[in-house]
Design a protein around this nucleic acid. Structure first.
Lengths: 236, 236
DNA sequence: AAGTGGTCTAGACCACTTG
DNA sequence: AAGTGGTCTAGACCACTTT
């Protein structure tokens, strides 16, 4: 399992900031020398990290640390698409930004002990100018020190891009649980829906490396014009 | 791209019946000789087929053609789980088995020209003895020649297992679109739900090799006790 | 003991990008 | 032309399973 050790070291370099998002890695022969393994072993480690979108290879140019840009976010973490299957980048409108104590459910999802301080962010996402998604985001205050409404609002990239560039936290995977419910009063108001409308409720726990929970998010989706899309192939 | 050719040939062997589900493949050195490539190239082809669950490796024993048993079905294609996250194999109750002409929507999903003949199967799936899912399955009659209600009812394995063992069709991937709606009169009756209940509606197109559509399925799920679970990692 | 897959090596040559 | 990743080779040794 030499390649596992190489993979762990590459991840450690990213977490420690030795390898910053967007930066190039040393070439494969140099990595092989540095780790005292053959090129094939380096390739196997890099292969897996590329499959997880942590690294990006460009033939003839080099291998780079993956940046959480819009494209990556849409491809990997945004599963809402129109009836035609086309996925559009949503316009995000901040509703509320507050700091409070984690509920029991939130603490459990984030792996917190007791009721630690969390940031709660409510957003409305618009597609084609119409409000479609109500996001309620919960993150541990200790994991995102110095976050303020101002920092949050003035971000230039996606929310996950902010996590990565401002706090060094790269989201690499997420689990979601989806169910149908009748829209709540608050979501109905934000999404401009009448009472009694069925909506999707999506609970997401997003993880950084080593399956460490970083974000808990509840999304309420008006699915009159869009679907939640899921592809089942290879490793489920 | 030699390993691609090896992979195609291995798939062709499975489709033609040369390699039957559950049967062992020749060992890697024999395969390498047969295809005139090195073992490493064979391994790369087999690696991908293992990732897609088409082949199964067992160290020290050999490599086998994947059988669509309950375990594989549950792991790869059944995404409904209880609130505790545990997934239970459902009891299936046949409601109706009919033969009719494909609607436009069904023909499009299955890639049929015109309005060909299809089998329509309605099932009720029970979890812990309670009806939770109403499945409406549509498959092309030409793709499943000789299928009857009797054959369908007397199957010993899963539905996808029947496709594989009786018709040589292995389901390898599926796309799903999920939304919330109010339960229909028919589904409400089958699931013992009052009118006005929100339910999940899942449209699935299941594919065999080469992304050839084999089944169109609409599942209506009562999500009061269960969730639709989705994991986002590596290749989305 | 014999046979299998699992890992690793140390190269070779090719395709692509950049200067 | 030089440097990069992409593919392929032809072995070696190990861990595991079966006989």
């Amino acid at each position: 399992m030499l390649y596992r050790q190489v993979k762990r070291q590459l991840i450690a370099d990213i977490q420690s900031g030795v390898a910053a998002p967007g930066a190039a890695l040393p070439n494969e022969t140099d990595l092989a020398r540095r780790f005292n393994v053959s090129i094939g072993t380096v390739r196997r480690a890099v292969d897996e990290l590329v499959a997880e979108h942590v690294l990006v290879r460009q033939q003839g140019r080099g291998t780079f640390v993956g940046k959480m840009d819009r494209e990556r976010f849409m491809f990997q973490f945004f599963k809402i698409a129109g009836r035609d299957g086309v996925s559009e980048f949503p316009q995000v409108r901040l509703h509320t930004f507050t700091r409070s104590r984690a509920t029991r459910e939130e603490a459990q999802a984030l792996g917190l002990h007791g009721t630690q301080s969390v940031f709660c962010i409510d957003n409305v996402l618009l597609l084609k100018g119409r409000p479609v998604i109500h996001d309620h985001i919960v993150i541990a205050a200790t994991m995102f020190p110095g976050l303020t409404e101002d920092v949050f609002t003035k971000r230039t990239a996606t929310i996950y891009g902010l996590y990565q560039s401002a706090f060094g936290i790269t989201i690499v995977e997420a689990d979601e649980r989806v169910r149908a419910e009748l829209v709540s009063l608050e979501s109905a108001r934000l999404l401009n829906l009448p009472a009694g409308m069925p909506v999707l409720r999506i609970e997401r726990v997003a993880y950084t490396f080593d399956r460490k929970p970083a974000e808990f998010r509840i999304s309420v989706v008006d699915t009159r014009d869009v679907d939640y899309v899921s592809r089942m192939r290879d490793a489920a």
